[in-house]
């Protein structure tokens, strides 16, 4: 029963994906169809064209299982194994250093802006 609802709602979410693909044909911007779909769904929710209940269970399932959907692509790495093992360690260091910089800068900026805006927030 619950699975049926989730499947139906995911099919309904596909309608927005297809509408997004159609919109991409008209608007010549390098933006993926799924992103147009996201905007259309968001708009439809804001304008109360569709109700949150119609898609909420399906959307929650998709987002909860998001990690599952890129497991197959990660398996595809075996097609590149010799190059990865060659520079793998350097790449891991690169990602680590860069991620520390990204998180540090983002946190400092956000903290500064929040504190300047006034301490009543949060």
């Amino acid at each position: 029963m619950k699975i049926g609802v989730i499947i139906l709602q995911i099919l309904f979410i596909h309608v927005f994906l297809f509408l997004g693909a159609a919109l991409k044909e008209i608007v010549a911007l390098p933006i993926p169809a799924s992103m147009f779909g996201l905007f259309l769904l968001f708009l439809a929710l804001c304008l109360h064209i569709i109700k949150l209940e119609w898609i909420e269970k399906g959307a929650n399932w998709l987002l909860a299982e998001l990690l599952l959907f890129f497991v197959p692509s990660a398996v595809g790495i075996v097609n590149y194994d010799e190059i990865i093992s060659f520079q793998g360690a350097e790449i891991v260091v690169l990602i680590g250093v860069s991620t520390v910089m990204v998180m540090g800068m983002t946190a400092l900026i956000a903290e500064k802006v929040t504190k300047r805006k006034g301490s009543e927030q949060l």
Binding site: G20, L41, E56, A59, L63, F70, V71
Partner: peptide, 19 residues
Amino acid sequence: KWLTHMLGPATVAFAVPIY
């Protein structure tokens, strides 16, 4: 490829948390 395909509707589904 059907699992990978689900990334499309999953992206669309991000409209829900924003909303």
